[in-house]
């Protein structure tokens, strides 16, 4: 077992097939608390599937995922959902903000899902929106703000519950380089100050350069680049 001591989230020998294609074929992964790990690889290599498995969104066909000593594959769907609500945060490429809710309501949503009262949830949400420099967008709806602002709102939402791991799947995929850099800078800074680990799936090396470590996924197999040098 090559589990590095003190890892927060460790996955070994993950396998996952969609139909006849093997999205994951013995992938490994580990991340420390507060660490930013970039997951890279060509399209269709299985990097998103790896993220989905690590986050407990999709159960792998086989293999083990251990988060803070708990085996994720042994949890029920409801338990995994609860874990995602409280311990994890998510940022996707696009289409993740509820178009009818205002930005502050969107950010407050994960808190509301855990049962926090509306007023309090929105106060916390505003705090995080300040961190991401989007506090003045609170009353606007996602359709009325730019893509970069939307992603920052999404990052604020990912951070609002104080998660220990943030999963970001191509968070800058739909942005130009300036906005992409800004989002990455704010995301990693906020994550570091909150001591949250970040699993960052990206195909852009300049985005990956914000990480501490890089893992390359090819044909469903992972490769930790740190161990090469």
């Amino acid at each position: 077992m090559m589990t590095p001591a003190g890892s927060l989230l460790v996955a070994t020998d993950l396998r996952k097939a969609y139909g006849t294609t093997n999205a994951l074929d013995g992938a490994e992964f580990s991340i420390h608390a507060g660490e930013v790990v970039a997951v890279m690889g060509p399209s269709g290599s299985g990097k998103s599937t790896l993220l989905h498995c690590l986050a407990g969104i999709v159960p792998p066909d086989s293999g083990s995922i251990s988060y803070a000593g708990r085996e994720l594959t042994a949890l029920s769907d409801a338990e995994r959902s609860a874990l995602r609500r409280t311990e994890f945060g998510f940022v996707f490429q696009f289409g993740q903000l509820v178009p009818e809710l205002t930005c502050v309501e969107n950010v407050a949503l994960p808190l509301r899902l855990t049962g926090v009262r509306r007023k309090e949830a929105e106060r916390t949400a505003l705090h995080w929106m300040e961190q991401l420099q989007v506090e003045d967008l609170g009353a606007k709806r996602p359709g009325e703000i730019s893509g970069g602002q939307g992603q920052r709102v999404a990052v604020a939402r990912a951070l609002v519950t104080g998660p220990r791991v943030i999963f970001a799947d191509e968070p800058t995929g739909a942005l130009d380089s300036l906005n992409g850099e800004l989002v990455m800078q704010l995301l990693t800074e906020a994550a570091r100050s909150a001591n949250a680990a970040v699993v960052l799936v990206t195909h852009e090396t300049r985005v990956a350069a914000y990480s501490d470590r890089e893992i390359v996924v090819r044909d469903g197999k992972s490769r930790d680049m740190e161990r090469i040098v």
Partner: peptide, 14 residues
Amino acid sequence: DTQRAEHLRLMRIL
């Protein structure tokens, strides 16, 4: 891959 890791190391520093 070795070269890639080296490049990325420099990119991180930058």
